[in-house]
Simulated scan of single mutants.
Amino acid sequence: MTHNQPLTLSVRHPADSIAVLTVTGEIDVDSAPALRTRALELIRQGRPHLVLDLAPVEFCDSSGLNTMIGILRYAKDRHGSLSLAATPPHLTRLLDVTGVGELIPALPTTAEALIRIAMPGDAPEEQETR
């Protein structure tokens, strides 16, 4: 890693059962546990639908992808969901190459992720990536 930007997490609650967690910095073996802990905490607090706003993410390795899969499983076990929003191009490529993008919906914006949660039956089957 060249940047060594620490991971910062900020949360907003656009609805009772939804949390948007904005992730800034690098998601790697050192920082992934903090992301997992905070995400699972939000789900346990009654916000089973989680959106990760990844626009400010500068780097993500396989630990970050494994963390996202773990968060998805935890959310689904509690009748929730995990969506990714505003994934930067380097992360979109990683999601595509590894197949994780097939498991976790990635939408162009946080607003579109929130609409998908609010109206899951109205969401298009295939989301276009930018």
Rank of each mutant, 00 (worst) to 15 (best):
I43G: 13
S62G: 07
R73N: 02
S62T: 08
D61H: 10
L65N: 01
A39E: 06
E125N: 05
M119Y: 05
P88S: 01
S31C: 07
R73G: 00
P33W: 11
M119D: 09
S31P: 12
N66D: 12
L42F: 07
L107I: 03
R38N: 14
L91V: 03
A39G: 11
T98R: 02
L52Q: 12
D28Q: 07
I117K: 04
C60H: 10
R44M: 15
R12V: 15
D28A: 10
H3G: 15
L91D: 02
L72W: 01
P88K: 04
A85P: 02
R44A: 15
A85V: 03
T24L: 13
L82M: 06
H13V: 07
L107P: 04
S81A: 11
E58N: 14
R116G: 09
R73P: 00
E125I: 08
T22E: 12
D122T: 00
A34F: 13
A106V: 04
Y74M: 03
A85M: 05
L82W: 03
T2H: 10
Y74W: 02
I104N: 10
G101P: 01
I117T: 03
T24H: 13
T87H: 01
E102D: 14
L91C: 06
A113R: 02
L103K: 00
L72I: 01
R47G: 13
D30Q: 13
A85Y: 07
P120V: 06
G46W: 13
R78P: 03
S31D: 11
R36G: 15
L95W: 04
R93D: 10
I69K: 09
V29N: 05
P120F: 01
R36P: 08
